[in-house]
């Protein structure tokens, strides 16, 4: 079983549209994991049935029992996040600022502070429209701990894939280089970077590739909208060659991507022409590349 993780560095390069199309091409050989948990969109194309759902608890917030509090202010002094605010005569926790470190609870002389575990979201196991299984999640509004929810989604996807002896886990990652991305990369067998030939796209790809290298992972690259700047596309190509990143495919600038999305379809269900062919060839290439590595 191979775990394939799709990331991009920069947002909006076509990562999810392309990954969803691969999910349709992989069919029942793959378990799909949407690890872009704080702005998950893949379900809009794959139409999961949300068959099984579970709450996800992670991290803490402090709560002060005003009855017990003797207003010594030690909690406010200890807090490095300015999360304790004195309002009139009472001390209060600002939920958005509380990091859940528990320092205040630890030092409160009358044990008036409780650390309460937080419900930060939900995760789901679903069947998608081609009957493959998908694990996905939704992070609560403004919640942190997205990295931990990503780890949970990946772990569940892995369990399903192992039990049913699937060939692939296909993971849609999030933009950036922070904790959710680090979580989605850990344990990957192969990384696909979807980029675009723009100065920001290339810059962000280089940064995220540095992260991929930190994990000693092998990677391939898909250049989307390659024709909007052929000069930068060439630069991306040389960067890939220099770093032994496999070049998987190039997609032209094509608004068919949006048209398919507007109908809730992946490209391979919508387009019978050039884009579908590129996607099919890309997926074949990815299968053979992951076999080699």
């Amino acid at each position: 079983m191979k775990e394939i993780v799709v990331i991009s560095g920069k947002g909006g390069t076509g990562k999810t549209s392309i990954t969803a199309a691969f999910a349709m091409l992989a069919g029942k050989n793959a378990v799909i994991a949407d690890c872009d948990v704080d702005a998950a969109d893949m379900h809009l194309l794959l139409q999961p049935d949300f068959a099984k759902s579970e709450d996800f608890y992670s991290g803490f917030k402090a709560e002060i029992d005003q009855e017990l509090c003797m207003k010594c202010g030690k909690c406010k002094q200890a807090c490095r996040f300015d999360a304790v605010k004195k309002i009139d005569d009472s001390y209060n926790i600002l939920n958005l600022d509380c990091e859940g470190c528990g320092y205040c609870a630890e030092i409160c002389p009358v044990k008036a502070i409780q650390m309460v575990e937080q419900n930060v979201g939900k995760w789901y196991i679903s069947k998608i429209k081609n009957n493959a299984q998908m694990v996905h999640a939704r992070l609560g509004i403004g919640a942190d701990n997205s990295g931990k929810l990503v780890a949970k989604v990946k772990k569940e996807a892995k369990n399903i894939a192992q039990e049913a002896s699937k060939d692939f886990i296909l993971v849609d990652g999030s933009p950036g280089i922070g904790c959710p991305v680090v979580s989605s990369l850990s344990g990957a067998d192969y990384v696909i970077i979807v980029t675009e030939p723009t100065l920001p796209g290339f810059h962000d790809m280089k940064r995220v590739y540095e992260l991929v290298q930190n994990f000693h992972l092998t990677a391939g690259c898909i250049i989307n909208k390659y024709d909007i700047n052929k000069e930068i596309s060439e630069k991306i190509k040389s960067f890939c060659k220099k770093n032994s990143i496999d070049i998987i495919s190039y997609f032209p600038y094509d608004e068919t991507f949006t048209q398919a999305m507007t109908q809730g379809k992946t490209i391979v269900e919508f387009d019978d022409g050039n884009l579908k062919k590129i996607l099919e060839n890309s997926w074949k290439k990815i299968i053979s590349l992951t076999d080699q590595h």
Partner: peptide, 14 residues
């Protein structure tokens, strides 16, 4: 601000 809806966005908007 950064993309998403989690803690980095809260910090950049609050």
């Amino acid at each position: 601000a950064p993309p998403g809806t989690s803690c980095p966005v809260i910090e950049a908007t609050k």
